[in-house]
Design a protein around this nucleic acid. Structure first.
Ligand SMILES: [Mn+2]
Ligand SMILES: [Mn+2]
Ligand SMILES: [Mn+2]
Ligand SMILES: [Mn+2]
Lengths: 220, 220
DNA sequence: AAATAAATTTAGACAAACCTAAAAAATAAC
DNA sequence: GTTATTTTTTAGGTTTGTCTAAATTTATTT
């Protein structure tokens, strides 16, 4: 595994998070996410291309090569292991760990990370409910469950919406419920199966049992 | 506490280690220690001077201001706490921790370090026997003892030589025993009070009881 | 299909932290 | 007290990663 600068690592990691099966990442998208200017993205893409970490053709966007993906998973592994350490050992709140892990993830020493993993007893998920890649880049693809099935106080992420009718999508928009949001079920009312949930740590809101059955999450 | 770049932190820390009560640090000395060129040192001293972290007059060498010393102690605190963590929690060997701590020390987040300190139960010495500064920069000034008094297998550092006769100094030179070296007593022979010691983890050597009584160390 | 707008790339600069080679100052040797 | 040596500084470059402004390409409107 080669060595990357902190900047290169942040680019690789962020491209990984933005790219999907069928869509390349665009220059503006990445610039916004990294709080830099589009010109800087182009500069770095040229560099990462010569290092064979991204596939990139001018004006066509870019995506990680296999090499690039391996590197990104390694950085994500470090980030999430440190987040787990901060929460479980140092008693940080789960919403304070990200900022610190952003720095710790760039300390590159394989033995350090593997020993940390061992010390933490090989955790499978970070404090946000995101899966932690192992040494080989493999990670849990926790099965999807509906919000109705999610246990109380377990963090999960919204990943899918079933039965995507106009009305349902509109309703989700109203309630500001989005794919990728962090969700915690705080109370369950068996009277009508309604739920009190928290989204991205914002004030609680109540949703109907019907809605809960159509919103799917991963890891709870 | 202001924010420093990793480079600035390395300069500050190293000046702290090199400066003594009466001697300023010289350009060449620092360049050699940091594996850079003298010209780079001059560049950085100008910069640190404008930031009021060092006192520096061209050609006169330099030393830390009070501000600079405070900053340096903070970096040393981080370095040694991480070394302690790596050795005590992650089961690194004591001679592997320094390299990793060189990277971790630059992660600057006060809460992280204070929580780490708490988690480690406020250790007073790092795995090399060097004292760990507390939040205010205070640290143990472990009392000096002679090598003859040092317990078996306890790490200590040579800090002083009593009765500095020509012969003694020459003898120390022969045996390559230097101030600052890490020393561990591996065996004690009561027959003649001679000791078998290890210096800086190199092959063991034997020294006489007379020599041991005149070489002083801190922390065992 | 032309015109307009948006996205992206290029050109040219800049700061941080290095470097080499030359000049200047301080020390040491005659 | 000159001369020679060592130390330090200055001058001028380089690399990495950023930026702004202008040019170019692609996408969207009419
Ligand atoms: Mn995170
Ligand atoms: Mn992150
Ligand atoms: Mn160390
Ligand atoms: Mn140490």
């Amino acid at each position: 595994m080669l060595n990357f600068s902190a900047s290169e690592e942040n680019y690789l990691k962020t491209i990984f998070h933005l790219q999907t099966k069928d869509n390349n990442v665009t220059t503006n998208e990445l610039a916004e996410r990294l709080h830099t200017r589009p010109a800087s993205i182009t500069d770095m893409m040229k560099k990462l291309k010569t290092r064979k970490l991204v596939n990139y053709q001018p004006y066509q966007g870019f995506r990680l090569t296999l090499e690039g993906k391996k590197a990104a998973l390694n950085i994500i592994r470090r980030h999430r292991l440190w987040e787990y350490f901060l929460a479980s050992k140092l008693k940080f709140n789960w919403d304070e760990v990200h900022e610190v892990a952003e720095q710790l993830e760039h300390v590159s020493n394989k033995k350090l990370i593997d020993k940390l993993d061992e010390y933490l007893a090989y955790p499978k998920f970070d404090p946000h409910g995101d899966p932690i890649p192992d040494t080989h880049g493999k990670m849990e693809t926790s099965k999807q469950i509906s919000l109705a099935e999610l246990h109380l106080n377990r963090r999960a992420r919204i990943c899918y919406v079933a039965n995507q009718s106009e009305l349902l999508l509109e309703h989700l928009h109203e309630k500001k419920i989005k794919i990728g949001a962090l969700v915690i079920v705080k109370r369950k009312f068996s009277y009508d199966d309604s739920l009190e949930i928290k989204l991205d740590n914002k004030p609680a809101l109540t949703i109907s049992g019907q809605l809960a059955k159509n919103v799917f999450v991963r890891h709870g």
